[in-house]
Write a protein that binds this DNA or RNA. Sequence first.
RNA 1: GCCCCCGUAGCUCAGCGGAUAGAGCACCGGCCUCCGGAGCCGGUGGCGCAGGUUCGAGUCCUGCCGGGGGCGCCA
Length: 573
Amino acid sequence: MDDTKTVLETRLRAVFDAVETGADPVLRPSDHADFQANGALALAKRLGRQPRELAAEIAAAASLDDLCETVEVSGPGFINLTLSTSFIANQLSAMAADDRLGVLGSEPENVIIDYSSPNVAKEMHVGHLRGTVIGDALCRMLTYVGHHVRRENHIGDWGTPFGMLIEHLIDVGEEKAVLELSVGDLDTFYRQARASFDSDPTFRDRSRARVVLLQSGDAETMRLWQILVAESVRYFDEVYAKLGVLLTDDDIVGESAYNSMLADVVRDLDGLGLLVESDGARCVFPPGFTNRNGDPLPLIVRKSDGGYGYAATDLAAIRDRVGRLGATEILYVVGAPQAQHFEMCFAAATMAGWLPDGVRVAHVSFGSVQGADHKILKTRAGDRIRLVDLLDEAVERAETAIAEKNPDLDAATRGSVAKMLGVGAIKYADLSTDRTRDYVFDWERMLAFEGNTAPYLQYAHARIRSIFRRGNAAVPDPGPLPLLTEPAERDLALALLGFNDAVTSTLGSWNPSRLCAYLFDLATTFTGFYENCPVLKAPTDELRTSRLALSDLTARVLAQGLELLGISAPDQM
RNA sequence: GCCCCCGUAGCUCAGCGGAUAGAGCACCGGCCUCCGGAGCCGGUGGCGCAGGUUCGAGUCCUGCCGGGGGCGCCA
């Protein structure tokens, strides 16, 4: 089907283009009509014409009679467009018949999306939560519009801490260590290793020697390292399953995966004359970056001790993803503090020719999760909160709330619904705030059944499904055009037709909060419809069918929208 | 000290250079012969400060104030 807003925009663009090549109609949703085109104002200014006069000319030339009921020039030169009911009804009917609910496909890109990235032998905490949830939602949407999406979980499975972790593994004993790691007590394991490293000089020496063995590929050391990795990955899988994200073992491409390419990266950079030796380290100095003294800031590729820095790994990844995997777009869903690092990496990779024209790379950064005190979320004891504990508590709280609000629900259903609500609430809280901002974590708010929350949207969906259950009504065929006589019916219809725009604009900014805002608006608009337009008790059969169709389409959009966010929508709750 | 991000209602957040800046929570006042009241209607209340660009600025630019983060061998 053709998208409603796109149809209007295309039609207007042709007329604007005839006046001045490339002129933008600036079509926006409007408070004064269904849409408004603001482009005549700027265009009139450039041409030295009267804005209202030009707007009237454009409105007439566009001949929108088949789409619009009224086209009016208003204010200083806005073109207000009110769609005709028959056009809306036709669009809605096409949307209902469309498996993709009117969401347009995109020219397929080969997208690699790098997200989650926990560290081996370290607990997953709330800091990993946001990136995992946002990255996952973007994967779902990118796939939905037709891109080839490759997920990569760039886990921290290499580097100097592994000397200490392996030595600790030896001290604890393999069996006991595996047991400790398998129950998910990664923090204790890591802390004990750290404590030994800090307090015991002998252990410290052993750790350093072990790092050398690891880097040289010593077989026994590799075997021990592999135990740490395998046990951690098993644990990550549990967390991902609980969280309900797409990531699996197949998506793991840890830092160690690039070890064999690091020497080539250095060789290539050197060959291009981009490497400069500075204090014993080999660095790229991308222009425009300075340190606190105003001196050029280095991207350290090879450390003075001969080891590779993480910049080397990130550069190797870019080179490999573009060169071998044919990525046309690479997204890094990583926290905001690493912004400068990525800017420098992208600059260096561009200098090296590893990011040719036509390949887009972006740091999709996000803000931190804060406690009520506006500091990084911690437990009362001052520890980082484990992600699993957070999820368990959310499900517990959701179950309590459901038991209170719907005591008739059987225990099994209540349990499964509690998981959908609890996990959904946490994910939605992460997704519904502009991703670049820090956000304040608040149990009460995210689990509330009012306001812009997952439970509210899930409830709106369940309530619609219950209409069909209570009324013993079948979902109507998409054939007949809906009747849109009441204002509330028309409002709902227009809201439904905005789904494509919501998904498109979310992907344009990689900001899932756009889709969240849309779904919340749709749900509240439906409530208005539901208050004003009896569905099962509609005055005529024809109207009943029409309203059932509107209700069903709303439920489908809500469920699909939540699905794109990685959130489940139960039929009852 | 330099660089980046952020300052919108009491709180948490939307606002794509366009018309009278919107929600939710909280607070106040209404609504029930209601298909799920987990509701609906109304009210109180706001763009950190000062300049500038523009026909038009919460949005763009400059400075200041406030908060967070980064700034050479951790990732």
